[in-house]
Amino acid sequence: MTADRLPGNGPGVVVDPGSPTPPYEQIRAQIVTMIEAGTLPAGAQLPTIRQLAADLGLAANTVARAYRELEAGGWVVSRVRHGTSVAARRRVSEADVRRRLHEAAHAYAVLARRLGVGTDEAIEAVRSALAEDAARSARPDDPVRSALPDGEGEPGPDRPT
């Protein structure tokens, strides 16, 4: 669940205590989505851990863990007396890339199985999608490419780490 824009409140996050996803992960995932979508631009200040924890009715440790994960992933930077802000240029770590790739692949595998698609057909669909994407990203007006942060979406060896 996400709340990119809360009416009258600007960008915001929603946490469902009944969800199987831990609250810190819900917060992390929504902030990542907003940074990727540009709702939270580079330099945007995030609330303090205590403020967000109070507003969400969560323990400060929960929000602190979400912020730590965001910082470790290069999404935000924290400075003493300046608080936490969205990183100017997101640095994608190899571990983060592998983790996200694995999550996407796993979700795709689950979908393919539910649709009753065989392994070969599923892999062929991925190959086809990758080829289409490579052809599209070669075009300068590619909307997906322009929406990604600097460096992301480039071929592996050039990706900042």
Partner: peptide, 16 residues
């Protein structure tokens, strides 16, 4: 009193 939290918690990302 502060405002009550609902079942699903939502908060703005606007720093005060």
């Amino acid at each position: 009193d502060h405002l009550a939290h609902g079942r699903v918690r939502a908060a703005s990302l606007r720093p005060r």
